[in-house]
């Protein structure tokens, strides 16, 4: 067993693990070896083996180990208000927004369009599996080492101001989702622990998102217009939005 102490979503966690290279994987998030910690988790070889069952294709033990660590951490941290949400999270002008969708829809592609259109006003927090942490006043989105195949993201956090679900379409349109419409979509993109009380904590956090965070549905193609439209919705320039959502109003957006 080897061990490291990491800082994930503001929680200092000591991690005991069997296979090499977790230290390198989490390099940006390491604390000194003698740091005090808030919680301790231990991942066994059996835990790593379990991950092989759920994974499609053949992966190295080192990779499966990272999955086992994240599963244990997110289960243990759920009752401290930490939630793993599947999506591409970025910060614009200091606020965090998340694009979410089933794998393969184009979350990362859409986030890349934002970087192209808005340049250095946009920083990637995490391109795949950011952590959300719920505080009384706000919910913060944190970068983590689990940041997708392109390893995009950074070790920083920003307050969550909106979530945008993506669907592919011929044209670009955005509309607000109601609480009822949001629930299944959010639940399907959250990590749900097998432990019942941790899972209950996750359900409460999802409910909190529904109640506090504006949630949008963007139907989009791969174009700069798509990025401008989702940006107008997420950043709160709702004067651009009609009841049915935005359609073909790029002229006004480009004036921004």
């Amino acid at each position: 067993m080897q061990n490291v102490i990491c800082l994930f979503a503001g929680i200092k966690v000591k991690i005991n693990y069997p296979y090499p290279s977790f230290e390198r994987f989490a390099a940006e998030y390491l604390l000194p070896v003698d740091a005090a910690f808030d919680m301790e988790i231990t991942v066994s070889e059996a835990d790593v083996f379990c991950e092989r069952d759920g994974a499609e294709g053949h992966y190295s033990d080192a990779y499966l180990q990272t999955l086992a660590v994240y599963r244990k951490f997110c289960t243990a941290a759920a009752e401290r208000g930490v939630l793993l949400f599947h999506g591409s999270a970025l910060a614009m002008d200091g606020n965090a927004y998340i694009f979410s969708a089933p794998s393969g829809t184009g979350k990362s592609t859409h986030a890349a369009l934002w970087r192209k259109v808005f340049g250095n006003r946009v920083q990637m927090i995490n391109d795949d599996k950011p952590l959300l942490r719920f505080f009384e006043k706000e919910t913060l989105v944190y970068g983590t080492p689990w940041n997708g195949k392109h390893r995009l993201g950074g070790n920083f956090s920003a307050p969550l101001k909106g979530i945008c679900f993506l669907e592919r379409g011929q044209k670009n349109a955005v509309r607000a989702l109601t609480a009822r419409e949001s629930l299944t979509r959010l639940l399907s993109q959250c990590f749900l622990p097998d432990d019942e009380s941790a899972a209950q904590a996750v359900l409460s956090m999802v409910k909190e998102i529904v109640q506090k965070t504006p949630i949008w549905l963007l139907t989009c193609n791969i174009s700069e217009e798509a990025a401008r439209i989702s940006c107008a919705a997420l950043t709160g320039k709702r004067e651009w939005l009609s009841e049915e959502g935005i359609n073909g109003q790029t002229e006004e957006f480009t004036r921004e």
Partner: peptide, 8 residues
């Protein structure tokens, strides 16, 4: 587990 929001 059952989750409820707004009657959903």
């Amino acid at each position: 587990l059952v989750s409820e929001v707004d009657g959903e």
